[in-house]
Design a protein around this nucleic acid. Structure first.
Lengths: 354, 354
DNA sequence: ATAGTATAATATAACGTTATATTAATATAT
DNA sequence: ATATATTAATATAACGTTATATTATACTAT
């Protein structure tokens, strides 16, 4: 049942338009538009009178009209895979700092990791008049992003995932994060190291893996890179739990485990609890992201912290810049923000810690 | 620094408009509009040709133009206090079922429980062309909601909180939930019962309290209602933790505790763990909502389950109805959905359980 | 055959805005 | 004093859509 749009909004209480303000002041439409937008050549006196009248009538510009005319709506769109992505909450805090200051609103929509929805929502937000888009954890396809960016002439900023050089991006230094994790685990003792990786289609996850392998190879040239890596199909605790079944069949404790993100690592922790594997004695675990709940766990998780809030602010700032200065879009920036190791009990307790 | 909207979108790749389709078929604008909207009187043959052309050109109507004209945008707005509200995730699942089927999109924004932001966002979403709004956990002020609903002639559905009879609402049966909690705790043994309430300004929270007091009074007419109730300033785990400090000063175990929601109850559980109070022997706890993580706790929490997903679907369905049949707005429905008791270990183990 | 009535299409206006072009009035330079 | 620039305002058109009014054509009934 597609839903009919028959009835027009006939009984809406009318809101003040430019025309109303113009009539109140006894001046032309153009004058009002120019006065309120700080454009054109008007006497300060007239400008003031118009602004006063607009205030009195509680005039607010109609974004639909503006957008139709080819202007801005002062709203941006945010597309994420899942609302309950824990990274997202802190990201938005940073984003909001910037948008609030700039007088922008933002609206969010989730894709459920479905490409179909991603396409739909990206387009819908653009159609709805978004001045720019921020897309988190997007798919690896970018044809639709290019199409929307071109058709609507709006910039797009990608998060956690670069995709060619057509779009601006904000990402954590995943490569360095992977290396930090490896180096930390190497300091523990002589135990073998393993990595639970994510899909290597996503540049961010690939880099975590590469960083880990670099760190491992530097200290133990003899280690078999291929044999050290497992791949989680999904970034969920369940996936981590299930992979552990495979891992303990092929490797025996003690093990050092670098896991692609904190949620998958939570699954690993649960597995160990269920199977009486001591953490960190039998299995030392390093996660990635530093989501909020890690500290409150029975065994707090060591992780690579990414600057979630700062990434949100950087993304908003970058988008704002690209909206304001369209020429910058020709050469969109890629920001890589630093990560840091946060040591907690899931790797502490062993001797070699510093 | 408010951000200037100088530059026009001059280098946008043009997208197909009604005019393009009309020219392709060699027919008038009106004909195309009518054909695509299933209105007017056109031969089936022409209608088909027009639809085919629209498909070929990948024509998609411009929502800004539609909204300006006084029509629909096929998008609704959702306003919530916090994105990390655990209720929200399931709510959206239900909502999405309905909106997907109806070909509607939805966009979400968070208020941080600030009235200023609530006002801003509700208005912004309406200005942006939302066909209707769903407002969760809103403030107790409704003047701005009425203003927006009137000015833009769009319906609003409130969740978890009724506010006069001007708006449709979807809520859980909080009164019954409170009573169920009391009755369950009363079945345990003779221990005194306490309630950690929320602010009674919100109708939903008030009803939880009233339900609890009803249940208590029915079984123990002698109980002192006022002395049994504490009030949490915020609905956070921290608030629950801190209130427990006060409670244990004035009451000694064993106690039965009905807590206004699961998050506050989590704070209570943490307090008990820290202070070596056994659950449920010393303190039996019942929460409210049944958020997702309760089952995975060390001591799974007994709670009153509210049908989160169903509430989302009901809200979307109600809004859709009010959008489609504006006359129904005169008498907006209030849906109260049933709740159920979910018994887990935070109250089990005592004798009287069934 | 003529008027009247469906039927199938088109023309037009309006929604609220703003960029561009135009006009009117004033100041400056020769 | 006349031409030329500067300033301050206005008029107009266009963005894409759809409801309403209008026209043209064919079909019925008398």
């Amino acid at each position: 049942m597609s839903y009919a749009s028959d009835m027009k909004k006939k009984n809406a209480v009318p809101r003040a338009t430019l025309k109303d303000v113009a009539e109140m002041v006894g001046v032309s439409l153009s004058a009002v538009s120019q006065a309120l937008n700080g454009r054109g050549a008007l006497t300060d006196e007239l400008r003031a009178r118009i602004k006063q009248a607009a205030l009195t009538l509680d005039y607010r510009p109609n974004p639909a009209a503006r957008v139709l005319r080819g202007g801005r709506s002062s709203a941006i769109g945010v597309v994420i895979n899942h609302f309950n992505n824990p990274f997202f909450r802190n990201f938005l805090l940073g984003l909001e700092e910037i948008t609030d200051r700039a007088g922008l609103s933002y609206f969010v929509s989730q894709t459920h990791d479905e490409l179909r929805k991603e396409r739909l929502l990206v387009r819908k937000l653009a159609e709805q008049g978004a001045d720019g888009l921020i897309v988190l954890n997007c798919s690896s396809e970018h044809a639709h992003l290019e199409a929307v960016s071109d058709t609507f002439a709006i910039p797009i900023v990608l998060i956690s995932h670069t995709l060619g050089d057509r779009f601006a991006a904000v990402q954590a230094d995943n490569l360095r994060g992977g290396r930090l994790a490896a180096e930390h685990l190497l300091r523990l003792d002589e135990r073998p190291l393993l990595h639970i990786a994510g899909t290597t289609e996503k540049s961010g996850l690939l880099n975590r893996k590469l960083g880990f392998l670099q760190g491992l190879a530097a200290a133990r040239p003899e280690a078999d890179a291929a044999a050290s890596c497992y791949t989680a199909r999904e970034l969920t605790a369940r996936a981590g739990y299930e992979l552990m079944n495979a891992i303990v069949k092929e490797h025996s404790p003690p093990l050092g485990l670098f896991v692609v993100n904190d949620e998958v690592a939570l699954g690993v922790l649960t597995y160990c609890r269920h199977h009486k594997l001591d953490i960190p004695k039998d299995v030392a675990v390093v996660g990635f992201s530093d989501i909020d709940i890690l500290e409150t766990l029975d065994i707090p998780l060591t992780t690579i912290r990414i600057p979630q809030q700062r990434m949100g602010a950087a993304a908003a700032q970058t988008l704002l810049d690209l909206i304001t200065y369209p020429k910058n879009r020709e050469c969109p920036p890629i920001l890589t923000l630093p990560v840091s190791l946060v040591v907690r009990e899931s790797t502490a307790g062993s001797a070699a810690n510093r």
